[in-house]
Amino acid sequence: MANQSHPNLDTVFQALADPTRRAVIAQLGEGPAAVKELAAPHDMALPSFLKHLDMLERSGLVRSQKTGRVRVCTLHPEAFQAADTWLDQQRRLWTARIDRMATLAEALERDRPERTHK
């Protein structure tokens, strides 16, 4: 579950690159809505609409939950921040630190007096 809040930015861009999907996001900006309500304004067959919804869900921007027979969608705009969440910052920070640490360790190792270790 937690991973869904850190989607790939590519899938976010992809999700936004279509007018139908942007309209769905705008509608969900007003509050959660059932799939049926979301599909209503769009002149397309339900399976086609569901494909759009699926792409939005994969991006992390939209999540859905089934309540009885109704599937309700909610907007998760934090996916817009996918590129720079605190977790991403920390992960990048630690990768940079450990790269630097490894470089220093290797330099130190080279300067060590000759010794045998397997």
Binding site: W94, A102, L104, L108, E109
Partner: peptide, 17 residues
């Protein structure tokens, strides 16, 4: 999250860092 590295230095050297 994790970060894994292979380092061309002995564990004693890495530990000092």
């Amino acid at each position: 999250f994790d970060v894994t590295r292979e380092i061309a230095a002995a564990p004693e050297t890495v530990y000092r860092l």
